[in-house]
């Protein structure tokens, strides 16, 4: 057990009775209904559910990219009123800026987020070293000066993870970050992400439709219903860390995945 699993930590992210409606193509879409959850500092939470159930919407609410129609989103007890500076986000596609090198892409948040923004020109060397170190941790040593198109999909996603972490955010939001990768690369990156999280101790919300991924990485897995999305199940993953791919074939792991699989089957029906 690591300190991240400490249930005594204060609550970091909280959703209270959150609902969201929006109009798309003239149709009223009811995306989320009455979602309540509390995530403790340093916790790794995964949200799984059928596609189009509003998983991504939860991340956008926490990031302050969308305001809730009803209810409240709180970070460290304060209502979210707009984009947050202590949040890092990675998406299903790496979305790197093609005109920047890997290193320059990782540095982007430091050019935007305070207080780094002010000091960026002065401390560029220091920031570059931090970015290089981060690239090294995800196994991209020697690729710092490559353009995105010179990197494979997996490498691009690693760069994207570094970009989400460079400004040392308190909360890391991951929107199906490995969904577009092949199985081998994906499972390799689970390990990378686990290490990053254990090093940094930040709070992580991972949205995924891969149940094995959720169980491998998270301390707690929430299952969402189809639209309008509600939280219908909550499962704690008490497997020891660091978890290895070998663990994924053990009965405790398999049973948990099977249990979630059954839940999803029920909500999709």
């Amino acid at each position: 057990m690591t300190m991240h699993m400490n249930t005594e930590s204060p609550i970091c992210v909280e959703l209270r009775g959150v609902s969201l409606n929006y109009v798309s193509n003239g149709r009223n879409v009811h995306a989320l209904q009455d979602v309540t959850l509390a995530i403790r500092q340093g916790e790794f939470v995964a949200i799984v559910g059928p596609s189009g159930c509003g998983k991504t919407t939860i991340l956008k609410l926490v990031a302050g990219l969308l305001p809730p129609t009803q209810g409240q989103v709180l970070i460290d007890g304060a209502p979210v009123k707009g984009p947050q500076k202590n949040v890092g986000m990675a998406f299903q596609n790496p979305i790197l800026l093609p005109w920047r090198t890997a290193l320059e892409n990782v540095l982007l948040p430091l050019e935007i987020v305070q207080p780094h923004r002010q000091e960026f020109a002065r401390n560029r060397r220091k920031y570059e070293e931090q970015a290089l170190h981060l690239l090294h941790t995800v196994g991209l040593e020697g690729f710092a000066d490559k353009a995105p198109y010179e990197l494979s999909g997996g490498m691009q996603q690693r760069v994207s993870l570094c970009r989400a972490l460079i400004h040392q955010p308190e909360i890391l939001l991951l929107d199906e970050p490995f969904a577009a990768l092949d199985a081998f690369t994906r499972e390799e990156l689970w390990g990378v992400l686990q290490t990053l999280w254990q090093d940094r101790g930040c709070t992580v919300i991972l949205v995924t439709h891969d149940l094995r991924e959720a169980v491998f990485l998270a301390s707690k897995v929430y299952v969402m219903s189809k639209r309008p999305g509600r939280l219908v199940q909550e499962a704690s993953v008490d497997l020891p860390r660091p978890r290895t791919l070998e663990n994924t074939f053990e009965p405790a792991f398999v049973n948990l995945v099977h249990h979630l699989y059954t839940c999803i089957g029920e909500v999709r029906a």
Partner: peptide
């Protein structure tokens, strides 16, 4: 500029001018 790319900067709290300077302009080159 693709909405996904805008989200990258918006999620960091970037302003409209940041969007222009860091993404819009270089992308228009």
């Amino acid at each position: 500029v693709e909405p996904e790319m805008q989200d990258v900067l918006r999620s960091l709290g970037g302003s409209r001018f940041d969007m222009f300077r860091k993404i819009g302009f270089p992308r228009a080159m």
